[in-house]
Amino acid sequence: MYRDILIQVFRFVFIMALQVFVVNQILQYNLVNPFIYPLFILILPVNTSFFWVLSLSFAIGVVADLFQMTAGIHAAATVFMGFLRIFFLNTALSKENFEKNISPNIQNKGLTWFTIYAMLLLAVHHFVLYLLEVLTFNEFFYTSLKAILSAAASLLIIILLEYLLTPTGKKK
């Protein structure tokens, strides 16, 4: 139990540090500006209660806001993503998955499943994020383009990270 919580805390800090000190330093163009911190919410164990999913979404969103010097946009986007995650997992996972309390990552669910899952949620996250940031529909096309390109970049980095950080030797 405590071990699980510790692992999650470590993940939280590690993913946020990666976002702030690596991704934000290297990849910051006007059109492509990826965010990898939603990975933390994506790979939470499936039996995490909805309250914790939403609280943690809010928490990691607020931390992202503080580091990006924005007010509330990351929190709002991540909470929205966490909300959709609950529905997505309820429809896209079998009973067996819930009984084993797996983490919905590449190792457990395969590349195709994870790509669709991450793509949908990341697209929603980035879209909400950039719309709230601009706060106008005047530049709608440009904002959508920015959201789509950034989400694609985020997806690519997240999949690479998943492969890099999964221990290859043992299969659960």
Partner: peptide, 29 residues
């Protein structure tokens, strides 16, 4: 209740986004 928890968190975030009062924002920052 899932929906209400969602609404509460989203409301807090959106208050931060839309808050016209720069004071609140500056306290947060």
């Amino acid at each position: 209740k899932i929906f209400w928890v969602f609404v509460i968190f989203e409301a807090i975030s959106l208050i931060l986004v839309f808050n016209g009062n720069p004071y609140h924002r500056s306290v947060y920052i």
